[in-house]
Design a protein around this nucleic acid. Structure first.
Length: 490
RNA sequence: CGGGGUGUAGCGCAGCCUGGUAGCGCGCACCGUUCGGGACGGUGAGGUCGGAGGUUCAAAUCCUCUCACCCCGACCA
């Protein structure tokens, strides 16, 4: 194992790949486009899941589970949805193998073809609405507020660990409401939940807004999104929340009887975030020494490295460590004492920096004499020696300080890399430089496409609640009612 | 799917051009000395050379096919 990883400056994507590998987050599997999430990486995902799940429950949702397989005929029912996902579906056509009569191994049993092919879910709107048909009859059955944690498959041409894999883990919320207004409110509420999570747990600031028609989820009336800015100046869609109108209700013939005994189609939403958030987390905070994790999502918040020569030294040091770990445990702060004698302290320091552990304590014989301990912060790489007394309290406040500091740093970066432009030349220069570019757009697909072709920049979002501000489209010069946010994106 | 590249020990690589007993560094195991920013010495284990087929007395090396991964594009959370 070489000591250093490429710097962000040298090669950003290689830096990213190395962090994922070296911090033990994930690795490529033998299956094309799929990844193995390793225990340390999965521990972070589990923390994300826990926080999000609590937030979903707090907003009245319940978890359920729907099948992995979607009958092809279901997928076909909502036309735009079908068209949007058709190109990337894995399809199951047979249900049995048999031994190869011409040699060794197994072959598909041609006598075991399914009457109807099953699609491995790229998303679950269709199976779920097929169930909702039975669940929803009266206005009293509404709203239906369901979430599921699941894996989905989208057969991607080019994959990157966490950012885009053929199979990925996510949650998908699927709700049904009696009125359009209620569904829109749900859509917006869940977007705020996502923004809250990403900002307050991941310490990554996001922009919130609406997607343009071309970027909209297949089958949605409106797609809301949160967008985060990565350190290389590219945008990353971190979560989406869709207002689905009555499209799926109509396609699956789901109706309810309202208070006036009239048949109505319910209004739908769906919303999701995925293991892609892991990519956002990595790219938002990490540095050339490795991963940097916000305390709220770090599997190990504090690592304690005793510095010792003999077993006797270690025993003496452990006497001092024990009160600290007891106090940390009481405060609910996770820790690890690494007294492995195989590696030297310097090696351990580098290793835990690579893994992004927010705080490191080092304590040796010198400290025993002085009644001190060395406290190091991963985010600033700063160290201080402080008295043993009160160190747990200090760590507790460090946790929130680091959490806040990471957010502030990311927000300052976002601010510094958001440019407002008026002219096409300014626009091209700003896109080339990277970051979010705020500009007027005439609202046409044609202009959006032209801009994408010429600069590779896409409209990341139309900011929510932005005041009308007349101007001229940066590309066409036509009238534009408001500014939108452009960027090159992942 | 197009263009470029890479597959040889757990990891990183040399060897291939010019066919002839498979090597180096790191890691791993054991022993000793070390231990406050990636320690050192000694001994040792570990490889159907990505896979299949072909040429040849002989293939990591030459030929064909195939699979996987990486980088750059088109598609996408």
């Amino acid at each position: 194992m070489s000591k250093s990883i490429p710097t962000r400056e040298e090669n950003y994507s290689e830096w990213y790949n190395e962090i994922v590998k070296r911090a033990d987050l994930a690795e490529h599997s033998a299956v094309r486009g799929c990844m193995v999430i390793k225990p340390y990486g999965f521990a972070i995902w589990e923390k994300m899941q826990r926080a999000l799940d609590d937030m979903f429950k707090a907003t009245g949702h319940q978890n359920a589970y729907f099948p992995l397989f979607v009958p092809k005929s279901y997928l076909e029912l909502e036309e735009e949805h079908a068209e949007g996902f058709a190109k990337e579906c894995a399809v199951v056509t047979h249900y049995r193998l048999k031994s190869n009569p011409d040699g060794k191994g197994l072959i598909v049993d041609e006598n075991a073809e399914l009457e109807e092919p099953l699609v491995v879910r790229p998303t679950s709107e269709t199976v779920i609405w097929n169930s909702y048909k039975n669940w929803i009859q009266s206005w009293r059955d509404l709203p239906v507020l369901i979430n599921q944690w699941a894996n989905v498959v989208r057969w991607e041409m080019r994959t990157r660990l966490f950012l885009r894999t053929s199979e990925f883990l996510w949650q998908e919320g699927h709700t049904a409401h009696a009125t359009e207004q209620e569904a829109v409110e749900e859509t917006e509420q869940m977007l705020r939940v996502y923004a809250d999570f990403v900002e307050n747990w991941m310490a990554v600031p996001v922009l919130q807004g609406l997607k343009t028609a071309s970027e909209r989820f297949a089958g949605a009336e409106e797609t809301y999104c949160i967008e985060a800015l990565m350190q290389d100046g590219k945008a990353l869609q971190a979560g989406t929340s869709h207002f689905l109108g009555q499209n799926f209700a109509k396609s699956f013939d789901v109706k309810f009887v309202n208070k006036n005994n009239e048949q109505e189609y319910p209004w739908a939403t769906s919303w999701g975030v995925s293991t892609r958030l892991m990519g956002a987390l990595i790219m938002a905070h990490s540095d050339d020494k490795g991963l940097v994790l916000p305390p709220k999502l770090a599997p190990i918040q504090v690592v304690i490295v005793p510095i010792f020569r003999s077993e006797e030294d270690l025993a003496k040091i452990n006497e001092k460590i024990e009160p600290i770990t007891n106090a940390l445990a009481e405060k609910g702060i996770s820790f690890k004492v690494d007294d492995d004698d195989k590696y030297k302290p310097g090696y351990k320091f580098a290793e835990y920096e690579l893994k992004g552990v927010p705080v490191r304590l080092a304590i040796g014989l010198r400290d025993l004499e002085n009644g001190t301990v060395e406290v190091a912060r991963r985010d600033t790489l700063s160290k201080e020696t402080m008295p043993l007394d009160g160190v747990a309290d200090h760590i507790e406040s460090l946790m929130s300080e680091i959490q806040t500091s990471l957010y502030d740093r990311a927000q300052a970066f976002q601010k510094a890399n958001t440019t407002s432009v008026e002219t096409w030349d300014e626009f091209k220069a700003a896109i080339e430089k990277g970051g979010f570019v705020v500009a007027h757009w005439d609202g046409t697909d044609e202009t959006e496409t032209k801009i994408k072709e010429e600069t590779k920049a896409t409209i990341r979002l139309i900011p929510l609640n932005s005041a009308e501000m007349m101007g001229k489209c940066v590309y066409s010069g036509n009238d534009s009612p408001r500014q939108v946010v452009f960027a090159r994106a992942y």
